[in-house]
């Protein structure tokens, strides 16, 4: 069944893409799907949109998608909303703020539930990004849950991280807090039609001009008034790709290895359990059992 799905995916069947994304979201068949994809495609730009709840991420993503479609670029949007830690339920409402053009095959919107806790994006979004890229979308936009501070995960996923801030959302000390401005490549003063936008812009610019800061673009955008949107896209497009910027970092490799290992534990739970059972029955001592586990987890 998975083979058939993958074949349909390769033939650009949209329903197969949707189903495979569901499997990945549930953490099923990760290894097989990862293996079926061609090597990482570095040419498709991945843009992450982050910022606090209510700052207008979904709305801006929708507007940005329209700018891109007008340029003839196809867009896949992976929109994350929080999942309840108590029930596992989720209200995925990002679509409501995005345009629907059902006749347009160049726009794909997928709503994803992100587990509660520290994560700003859904699990396995890295794999989903590769899938929509291979499916042939020109630009990928990832909308985060809106955790605000500490969205470090998106930095590794995306080429360009766009941070949204809005007027009247705290004094300048708020922006000094660690983790917020640090992750951004572009800062958008959103809802720029509201009073206080200019003051906020000057605060942000002042912070970013302190010694030791990276070069970060600051733009005023209003989705309501449709201003600054094309400028935003040209700014994003001119940002250097993260993949070309980052020095090879051992941490990235180690994190990836940990992730692969975790996936294999999950995918091969049966064989792993079998080894554990044999150890419980004293058929193996702890060293032998560990060796056996390594054998099971190795390819």
């Amino acid at each position: 069944m998975l083979d058939e799905l993958l074949a349909r995916f390769q033939a650009r069947d949209r329903l197969a893409l949707a189903r495979l994304l569901t499997l990945v979201a549930r953490g099923e068949q990760l290894e097989a799907i990862r293996a079926a994809l061609s090597p990482k495609n570095e040419t498709t730009p991945v843009v992450a949109i982050t910022g606090n709840a209510g700052v207008g991420k979904s709305t801006l993503v929708g507007k940005l998608a329209e700018v891109l479609r007008a340029e003839g670029k196809s867009v896949a949007i992976l929109a994350c909303d929080p999942q309840s830690p108590l029930t596992g339920g989720a209200l995925l409402g990002d679509r409501a703020r995005m345009p629907t053009h059902p006749e347009d095959p160049g726009l794909y919107i997928r709503s994803l539930a992100a587990p509660s806790g520290h994560q700003a994006v859904a699990q396995h979004v890295d794999l989903m990004i590769r899938m929509v890229a291979q499916f042939g979308f020109d630009v990928i936009v990832v909308e985060t849950v809106g955790a605000g501070q500490g969205d470090i995960a998106v930095r590794e996923l995306a080429d360009v991280v766009v941070l949204l801030v809005q007027p009247e959302s705290g004094d300048d000390l708020q922006w000094e807090k660690a983790g917020l401005l640090e992750i951004a490549d572009v800062v958008v003063i959103h809802k720029a039609d509201l009073p206080g936008a200019e003051r906020l812009e000057s605060q942000v610019r002042e912070l970013l001009s302190l010694p030791g800061c990276r070069e970060i673009a600051v733009l005023r955008v209003s989705s309501a008034k449709q201003t600054g949107l094309t400028e935003l896209w040209s700014t994003i497009a001119s940002c250097p790709r993260r993949s070309t910027l980052i020095e090879p970092d051992g941490q990235v490799l180690l994190r990836h290895a940990q992730q692969v290992l975790a996936e294999r534990f999950q995918d091969r739970a049966g064989s792993v359990g079998h080894v554990v059972d044999r150890w419980k029955r004293h058929e193996l001592d702890v060293t032998q059992a560990a060796d056996e586990l390594l054998h099971v987890l190795a390819r």
Partner: peptide, 12 residues
């Protein structure tokens, strides 16, 4: 449905 553990997509 959300509180019952479903993933509800509401497009508006």
């Amino acid at each position: 449905l959300r509180d019952a553990g479903f993933h509800v997509i509401y497009p508006g």
